[in-house]
Amino acid sequence: MSDNLGRIISTLLEGVPVTIQATLGGIALTIVLAFIAGLALLSKSRTVRVISRIYVEGFRGTSEMVQLFWLYFVLPALVGLQIVPLFAGILVLGLNHGAYGAEIVRGAVQSVPKAQYEGAVALSLGPFDRMRRVILPQAVVEMLPPFNNLFIQLLKSTALLYFISAHEITQKGEELRPALPMGDLTVIYAVELIIYLLLAIIITVVMRALERAGARRLGRKPPPRSKVFSSATAGGV
């Protein structure tokens, strides 16, 4: 170790706010797009379903890296408008993970028993109230575990903002690297990985608290408190 230690850590910490902004911004956009596109996938209108399907498959099918490069390097050339790196990053993170989130929303809404829909029909609730008051409150609870995994994927994807020089943690580390001896590299990567690990644990802790609150609201047994790591759902991302 060396006297560079303080400088390394403080430089890396400078990147933390950007990483957090990208993560929170990306999560917010993901949630909005996931709900819009996910409900659109269930629409009665074929046109609406097709448009949403094109968005979902388009963003799931092309690589997130390509999307980032396209938005950051191609779009400015097309429309003559250079996007701020952080903003471009949030846009790509949200658009990409929103497409995955749409399938989560669709699946969760479909998982609510049909009897709940019928109960709401029998009480003369209209389509909007059926969805907002009866189906969605139950579906949201089902969405929480898969969204936990998705948000951690999104957090990990913020490292890609290195490629567009957004001054987040990864880029801060790579700026330092060339000038430092081997021993200090250990510090860089250890600190970086620990920061991401901590952020991932924070996401999981928050999501698990929401899961417990959701289970209580539905009168179910709450999931255990102990686990700090998100449980990987085998289905994949």
Binding site: I152, G173, Y189, L193, Y196, A200
Partner: peptide, 14 residues
């Protein structure tokens, strides 16, 4: 758990 929770890019660099 550690590998799953941290970015592949940094793992590659490291």
């Amino acid at each position: 758990e550690f590998i799953r929770s941290t970015p592949l890019l940094i793992q590659v660099f490291a």
